[in-house]
Computed example of a mutant assay.
Amino acid sequence: MTTQPDHGHELIPRPERTPDAVRVALARIAPHRLSEMEQHKEQALAAALQDGRIGHLQHWLTHWRAQVEIERCPGLRSRYLGALAALHHTSSRDEPEFRAAMTELRAVEAEARQAVSA
């Protein structure tokens, strides 16, 4: 695992860029999400086998590296959960609050992806 601090205090070091390292990290900080990760992996594997392209698996790994980044960095996690809560308090996609929450979710995810791609 690397120990590059990007967002202040982290709960665990950033994992290496391997599926096993990402799985171990997720098990430490968000074990309730392991089944979601496994289901997503199975979908990516099926798509890769069907299309004959490894890109589905690369996307899966990038997505879960970003999810671990969000979970391991309290500031990112707080922003992410706040945006999710705001989304759940809206009743329509037309509400300004919905659009603002979606913008924040995308920003957090983009920040996390950028951090793990550096």
Score class of each variant (00 low, 15 high):
Glu95Leu: 13
Ala48Asn: 03
Leu76Asn: 09
His32Trp: 05
Ser91Ile: 05
Gly82Ala: 10
Glu69Met: 08
Gly55Phe: 04
Arg23Tyr: 14
Ala85Pro: 01
Leu81Lys: 14
Pro74Asn: 15
Arg79Ser: 12
Ala46Trp: 01
Glu71Gln: 11
Thr90Arg: 03
Arg77Thr: 00
Glu36Cys: 04
Pro15Ala: 10
Met37Gln: 11
Glu71Gly: 04
Ser92Phe: 06
Pro19Met: 08
Glu36Leu: 12
Glu97Ser: 15
Lys41Glu: 14
Thr62Asn: 06
Trp64Gln: 02
Gly82Met: 06
Leu34Ile: 14
Gln58Val: 12
Gly75Cys: 05
Ile29Lys: 07
Leu61Ser: 03
Ala46Pro: 06
Leu87Ile: 13
Ala85Ser: 15
Arg33Tyr: 07
Gly55Thr: 08
Ile29Trp: 08
Arg65Lys: 15
Gln58Ala: 06
Val68Ile: 13
Leu34Asn: 02
Ala21Asp: 12
Pro74Cys: 10
Gln39Met: 10
Ala30His: 08
Ala21Thr: 11
His89Lys: 04
Asp20Leu: 08
Gln58Leu: 09
Ala21His: 13
Ala48His: 01
Trp60Asn: 07
Pro15Phe: 10
Glu16Val: 04
Leu84Glu: 12
Pro19Glu: 05
Gln39Phe: 07
Ser35Leu: 12
His59Arg: 14
Ala66Gln: 11
Leu34Tyr: 07
Val22Thr: 15
Ala30Ile: 02
Ala27Thr: 11
Ser78Lys: 12
Glu71Pro: 05
Ser91Gln: 02
Trp60Asp: 01
